[in-house]
Nucleic acid binder design. Sequence first.
DNA 1: CATGGGATTGACT
DNA 2: GTCAATCCCATGC
Length: 195
Amino acid sequence: MTDQAFFARSVHDVARDLVGCVLRHGSAAGRIVETESYHESEPACHAHIGVTARTHTLFREPGVAYVYRSYGIHALINAVCEEKGIGAAVLIRALEPVDGLDEMRARRGLQRPEDLCSGPGKLTQALGIGLELNGSLLTGGPISIEPRTATPRLAEGPRIGITKAAELPWRFCDADSRHVSRPWPPAMRRVRSAA
DNA sequence: CATGGGATTGACT
DNA sequence: GTCAATCCCATGC
């Protein structure tokens, strides 16, 4: 179980260090293989507009889950980071299924492990994470994040699916995982060893 | 109060 | 490759 201090750091450092950790909800769990970091200082972040009914969770204490509805259909989960009052969070974009595969298959209606959690909307469906978990604690709540046992090779590049601040290289993937939502073209890829 | 858009996905050409 | 589904909420009149 990660503690609050883990999240009370630069959102980009947390995004890197979350790759390889295990996200668990109930009996379903997966190893995080893809993250993106968002900070109030740039316009792609929901917190950029300030505190509103939608964004107030982002400004809460580190270690809180920010779950919101995307495109009217999907729930996306973030880990709130940095000190209370700063709007910053890590979007969890893909998992490699570890526990509860049959439960995930039932929720997703698909069989192949690489189809269960290879996208931010897919993994919340597979783990049964809904909007009611917005604001819950990742440090001792219904959703937990377990520390990684090995440090993966990290691939870094631009974030996906956004129109604003799309040039910022704040997407982080396990360079050796086949469970990411979408691989980079080889020319765009930057690989480095994890810290 | 009406309207437009979005950190996506799955189905279809 | 294109495109619709679907809904909360931020914005503007």
